[in-house]
């Protein structure tokens, strides 16, 4: 393979992902971290229960130090969201916002948790009857139909672009877009009708979605509304390649004490691996995941040299 293969690829630039990067890179693995530091849950928080820091500190300051540490040791941080993950023989293939595909030996999911519900009238009532949370799952039901996608970030834009391959009309409702240049350019070239500066007020329809009422009281006549807030979460990225979630609630990725998932070479750490949702726990799991992933990648390299 001509492309460089990354030893440890970390999805998420919060405490879990950055600590994983520090421990992996110090084990002489090549490390790339994907994600936006300012989108970490701790970024806007005031922290006083984290060991070794005195008084109340800003999460943003803690993360700034963490980024410095990780990059100083040799990890590369790319401020882009992941759009898709695939398995490629023993490796994993990860597509990011710019359209670039990265190949890696191990993957660490450190994507945190995210809010997925829009919380507007009609959303709950029409769930499964035109309201959807997964473009990749449900696009096929909207062949030649009219649809709207709601969201400001990569999941919404990527979702709207995917839907142009199925639906006859695709609307994107967003307050202000927050996506990388590559994805933004693709959107401009596409047939997606962007309603910028707008947000939904209500999803309308009796037994099925019939429209989306916006906050300026204009209404879009659509058969489907896709709620795609934030970046794609573990549900979309990890389950497609068979990573198991906790069976009781399906809200986090199941791991063992070594932060391994059910798939060899894939690890999870931090909020995405379950409660308690605390930085100390995220950092501890990040340490273990980074350590384990680097060992796995180094062993794989040694074996391939022997073969």
């Amino acid at each position: 393979m001509a492309d460089t293969i990354i030893d440890v690829l970390i999805v998420g630039a919060g405490p879990a992902g950055l600590q994983a990067a520090v421990h992996a890179v110090r084990k002489k693995a090549s490390v790339v971290v994907l994600g936006k530091v300012a989108h970490s849950s701790i970024y806007g928080a005031h922290v006083e229960n984290y060991l070794c820091v005195d008084g109340v500190v800003d999460g943003a300051d803690l993360l700034r130090t963490a980024v410095d540490q990780a990059t100083r040791f040799g990890a590369e941080i790319i401020a882009e969201d992941v759009l898709h993950v695939d398995q490629a023989d023993e490796l994993f293939k990860v597509k990011i916002e710019s359209g670039t595909e990265l190949l890696c030996r191990t993957l660490i999911f450190a994507t945190g948790t995210s809010r997925k519900k829009l919380k507007v009238k009609g959303e709950k009532e029409l769930s499964g009857r035109g309201v959807s949370y997964c473009v990749d799952c449900d696009a096929n039901f909207y062949r030649n139909a009219k649809v709207a996608v709601v969201g400001n970030e990569s999941a919404a834009v990527d979702g709207a672009l995917t839907l142009t391959g199925y639906a006859s009309e695709v609307h994107l409702v967003c307050q202000a877009l927050e996506v990388g240049e590559g994805l933004a350019a693709k959107l401009t070239e596409s047939s997606v009708q962007v309603h910028a500066g707008r947000w939904p007020k209500e999803i309308t329809g009796e037994n099925a979605v019939q429209g989306l009422l916006l906050d300026d009281d204009t209404s879009l006549e659509v058969d489907g509304v896709f709620v795609e807030l934030g970046a794609k979460g573990a549900m979309e990225l990890a389950t497609t390649i068979g990573v198991m979630l906790d069976l009781d609630t399906f809200s986090y990725i199941d791991t063992n004490k070594r932060q391994q998932t059910n798939i060899a070479g894939i690890y999870a750490a931090g909020d995405i691996a379950g409660p308690p949702w605390q930085m100390a726990k995220a950092v501890g799991e990040g340490c273990v995941a980074g350590w384990e992933a680097a060992n796995y990648a180094n062993k794989q390299k040694r074996q391939q040299k022997e073969d």
């Binding site: 997964c134 799952c137 096929n140 549900m235 389950t239 497609t240 068979g242 198991m244």
Partner: peptide, 16 residues
């Protein structure tokens, strides 16, 4: 459907 990640995820629960 086979291409739906969340569908795969709930497979084991359905079995149980």
């Amino acid at each position: 459907a086979p291409w739906c990640g969340p569908c795969k995820a709930i497979g084991p629960v359905i079995d149980e």
